[in-house]
Design a protein around this nucleic acid. Sequence first.
DNA 1: GTTGACCCTGTACTTTGGTACAGGGTTTAT
DNA 2: ATAAACCCTGTACCAAAGTACAGGGTCAAC
Lengths: 130, 130
Amino acid sequence: MGLRIGQLASRTYVNKETIRYYERLGLIPIPSRTAKGYRIYKAQTVDRVNFIKKLKRLGFTLNEIDKLLGVVDRNEVKCRDIYDFTVNKIGEIQHKIEELNKLEKMLVDLKKRCPENKEIYECPIIESLM
Amino acid sequence: MGLRIGQLASRTYVNKETIRYYERLGLIPIPSRTAKGYRIYKAQTVDRVNFIKKLKRLGFTLNEIDKLLGVVDRNEVKCRDIYDFTVNKIGEIQHKIEELNKLEKMLVDLKKRCPENKEIYECPIIESLM
DNA sequence: GTTGACCCTGTACTTTGGTACAGGGTTTAT
DNA sequence: ATAAACCCTGTACCAAAGTACAGGGTCAAC
């Protein structure tokens, strides 16, 4: 009743070695063990690993993810400066969204002007982004 | 008339070694040289380096930045598959924006419930994001 | 004419985020 | 009872994106 590391790995599409690595970093709870030392994970660890994957895709470092998870876990030490951290992160995220919006517009525009990858006429990428 | 590497570095807040590294990767144009071999950069290289910094902050790898710059430079080789690349990037960016919006809402919500970094009551981060 | 602040190349080291064994034990299915 | 498919620890290795010398030359100022 619980998952072994291989099952957790295949359910999350995350390498076994990476899971052990995350354990070393303290990103996932220390699993219980069978009598012979095999790791046994709770089903919710699947969500946890998926959450880590998602944040990674969004550009967070494992260190930042650790802080965010400190909040999830109500970990006194990890989320000591969580207020500043979140305020900061919100600012960063808003900025990132704006910049990504600009970049997206630029790319859409580029794609229009270059309909079948044939000719590239004008591309004021730098000007439009600076 | 032109910048030396130290000036380019201090104007962009990018390490001199990093600038030479970008040159090796082909991200910035090969600068001219003085008689004694000192690199001389055009003023616009400042913009170029800043553009690279900006894309990096947005989560692009140097490899992706190289492709994007291939478009800027109308480089036939570098932007051969630029159409697919941009279509793909647009999708990724849209997805990223959505996810960042969700994360931002979550953080704003968290901040409200934890007004002065004193108590953290509830924090369904995982649930709200999955 | 020498001191300090630059610059050069080349190589080596660092950090982050993993991956890949080696060398060993365990479990399951036949 | 013996493969095949797991799991363990520990160490080594990898790529990306830098960063840090070592060992040498240059230039400006005093």
